[in-house]
Design a protein around this nucleic acid. Structure first.
Length: 706
RNA sequence: GGGCGGUUAGCUCAGCGGUAGAGCGCUUGAUUCACAUUCAAGAAGUCACUGGUUCGAAUCCAGUACCGCCCACCA
């Protein structure tokens, strides 16, 4: 046998890069070059990864699903485009570059903004192509000629236009409010960028004049002078409205007792003092009662002059010293050592959040939610979520939304139009414009006219709030249309023990290493098969081995056909069809059922079912039964040439169709064997599987059935 | 505190109203003839628990128990 031209086993890395290159070079990913026979369009935006990052296994899952959709629609003759790109990722990128520079002994603030940004751009130019090339390796058939970056020039214009439009409509405003502040990144954050970490800490019960108050943060309490109790609390009723001289941290303060239902009778001692500048609830009450808001902790997390002898110290670090002073003053009643609460931390760096009052820009999301009527649209399923349970999650977020703080005290990002502070916009503000900005908005370009709104938005459920819902709102308000009406949310890929992958745990899997060992197709199938939409999955090498073997099976089925069948012309099929032995008839029926099932499952986003059905049929029906049954006819043992020919043609036609069906899932091995069987398939040099035609009902086999 | 998901064969998971499924593992056997990254045959589960609806329930409803996630909350 010709071992050299058709080796016994499939070695993915020998073919994959070459095939990926050919596809792209020939322009198969561009909608302009498609068959475009169906009269339909299919467009999908790629969730832009951080420009300076590396792909992780989650990106591989995203790419796999989106590529399956893209290839499926392309094969069906839809005018198909998958638009790729990268995100400048403000905080993350700035932090990476800052760390890199620090190793060289350079500090951002010493360098100055201009020099620093130059370094970031340099870094971006050096690393920006990594992501794209990794996507190519994953077989992503996105249109690279349309690749976008959230800080490229047209995108900047889109961001400016969006900002100005919303500002004109009074849906963006500026004001001094309590915001979440990360003292390490030294920037404001939105509510969604705060995470909660279950923590056990000390809970201090402090004597404050006529009451005892409980707090976890005594270091914020220097200027407290308002006691709040519940109006119906019998313990404190008689105190309401009275004033007291209270011995406190920096001498005696005049404290007043007010009543408000915001104070709960059950929590702590039922009495609390207000710290207007460093607590969301207290700030609101301070506004309600027109109380002064004085900053105790500054933007660097240091105590201000109001802390007296503690001024200049790190607030958190000074806590024990402050408590010691309180104790000396005889003001500490008791300390509960096992107080469990949720500490709010920065989602990027894990630093405890410091709530403080700051002048920032906000998007009036509550108003936009009303303007766009998005709640009704989701309730009526005009926007559909897969899986459906995310509908409820989305509605809950939209119904409880607060204004979105969009200004960031960073250097790397979109400048805020007309703002002289030098602040930039939240990365998520720019990415909320993604599905229309990447097709040319605010211009009504041909891509915008043709591909907007997009067909579907696919991403991980972890950025439903950050990205998906904000895109929906922004799209509707800026373009008049929701940017997509189907949202497919996939789950997280965890490690083999079910833990979340993270750098600190050291359990991050590099998809490129997996590809080296098992091949891209095996990786893709292992992420898609045996999973449920929106459900987390575990990284499994067992699965990878299994699907690597499957790719080898595909290879060897092709190898068998290559060896067993000589030149037959598919065009002659109809003439020999009635010679096909009857025993193959059930397989044709089964195949037709498979075709219907796979097509429907892909239409309905059931990738796992489609993949498993193909796996099952190709391996255990086509290879194990059909090929085995065909062997006697292919050998020279008394069957007529017409019969042999009919069997051969049946096998070839079946195989070609199965390759097309499998192609969205395993693009490389299918294209590789298609190439190997070019002569048998009577395919011209410029014909590739990627642009073949998705089989329709029984087209190939009906004339073989009599 | 509110919401959601999971609990199915030794392991990892599909299925979600009609006689329990897959992959891996395990047992037995085969093999110069496409593939040992193979083939054939097989063992293996009161589908977490309790009640209910139904002719019929892993599948629907109510509840319980564990595991996990999201949201709210640093009084």
């Amino acid at each position: 046998m010709d071992e050299q031209s058709f080796p016994k086993s499939y070695n993915p890395s020998e073919y994959e890069p070459k095939i990926a290159h050919q596809w792209e070079e020939r322009g198969f990913f561009k909608p302009e070059n498609g068959r475009n026979t169906s009269g339909k369009k299919f467009s999908i935006p790629m969730p832009p990864p951080n420009v300076t990052g590396r792909l992780h296994i989650g990106h591989a899952l995203t790419a796999a699903i989106e590529d399956i959709l893209t290839r499926f629609h392309r094969l069906r003759g839809d005018e198909t485009v998958w638009v790729p790109g990268t995100d400048h990722a403000g905080i993350a990128t700035q932090a990476v570059v800052e760390r890199m520079l620090l190793k060289q002994g350079k500090r951002r603030h010493e360098m100055g903004k201009e020099a620093f940004l130059k370094e970031v751009w340099k870094w971006k130019e050096e690393h920006g192509s990594t992501i794209s090339n990794q996507h190519r390796r994953l077989g992503a058939s996105c249109d690279w000629s349309r690749e976008r970056f959230t800080l490229d020039e047209p995108y900047q214009k889109a961001v400016q236009a969006a900002f100005l439009h919303l500002k004109r409509k009074k849906r963006i405003f500026r004001g001094e409010y309590m915001v979440n502040w990360c003292p390490k990144d030294r920037t404001a954050l939105s509510d969604d960028e705060v995470e909660y970490k279950k923590t056990t800490s000390k809970f201090y019960y402090l004597k404050y004049g006529p009451v005892v108050i409980a707090t976890a943060r005594p270091e914020t309490k220097f200027l407290d002078k308002t006691i709040v109790v519940h109006p119906k609390d019998p313990r404190y009723k008689k105190l309401i409205g009275k004033t007291f001289k209270v011995p406190w941290l920096n001498g005696t303060v005049n404290a007043r007792v007010i009543a408000d239902t915001a104070s709960s009778m059950e929590t702590g001692t039922g009495a609390m003092t207000l710290t207007p500048a460093h607590s969301f609830v207290d700030f609101e009450l301070a506004q309600k009662y027109d109380l002064p808001v004085v900053q105790i902790i500054d933007e660097r997390g240091l105590l201000t002059k109001h802390a007296g002898e503690f001024a200049g110290q790190k607030a958190h670090a000074a806590r024990e010293a402050i408590v010691e002073k309180l104790a000396k003053l005889g003001l500490v009643e008791k300390i509960d050592e096992s107080y469990e609460h949720n500490l709010s931390v920065c989602y990027r760096c894990g630093t405890p959040i410091e709530p403080l009052v700051s002048k920032q820009w906000f998007v009036d999301l509550p108003a936009l939610v009303k303007d766009t009527d998005i709640i009704r649209a989701i309730e009526k399923d005009e926007i559909r979520f897969i899986p459906a349970r995310f509908k409820k999650v989305a509605l809950h977020w939209l119904k409880n939304i607060r204004p979105w703080c969009i200004s960031r005290q960073l250097w790397w990002g979109h400048p805020i139009p007309g703002d002289k502070s030098g602040d930039v916009l939240d990365t998520w503000f720019s990415s909320s414009l993604w599905p229309f900005a990447i097709v040319g908005w605010p211009n009504h370009s041909s891509d915008y006219e043709k591909f907007y709104p997009m067909s579907v938005l696919e991403t991980g459920y972890d950025i439903l709030f950050f990205w998906v819902l904000r895109m929906l709102v922004m799209g509707k308000v800026l373009t008049g249309q929701f940017p997509f009406n189907t949202v497919y949310l996939h789950g997280l890929v965890r490690d083999r023990e079910g833990r979340k992958m993270s750098k600190s745990l050291g359990n991050v899997v590099d998809p490129l290493e997996v590809i080296e060992r098992f091949g891209t197709d095996a990786l893709r199938l292992s992420l898609v098969a045996g999973t449920a939409p929106g459900a987390d999955m575990r990284y499994s090498e067992t699965k990878l081995v299994g699907y690597r073997n499957f790719a080898n099976k595909i290879w060897n089925i092709s190898r068998f056909l290559h060896q067993s069948i000589t030149a037959h012309d598919l065009a002659h099929a109809p003439h020999s069809s009635h010679h096909l032995p009857k025993e193959f008839a059930p397989y044709i029926k089964e195949y037709n059922e498979l075709l219907a099932k796979v097509t429907r499952n892909l239409e309905e986003y059931r990738f796992s079912s489609a993949a498993e059905q193909l796996y099952e049929f190709i391996w255990h029906t086509f290879a194990d039964k059909v090929l085995e049954d065909s062997k006697p006819y292919l050998k020279d043992n008394g069957h007529s040439q017409a019969t042999q020919e009919a069997v051969s043609i049946f096998l070839l036609m079946s195989w070609k169709e199965l390759l097309i069906l499998l192609h969205p899932f395993m693009p490389f091995v299918t294209e590789a064997v298609y190439d190997r069987l070019r002569a048998l398939f009577n395919a011209k040099p410029d014909e590739f599987l990627i642009i073949e035609t998705w089989p329709t009902k029984q087209e190939v086999h009906n004339h073989l059935l009599r």
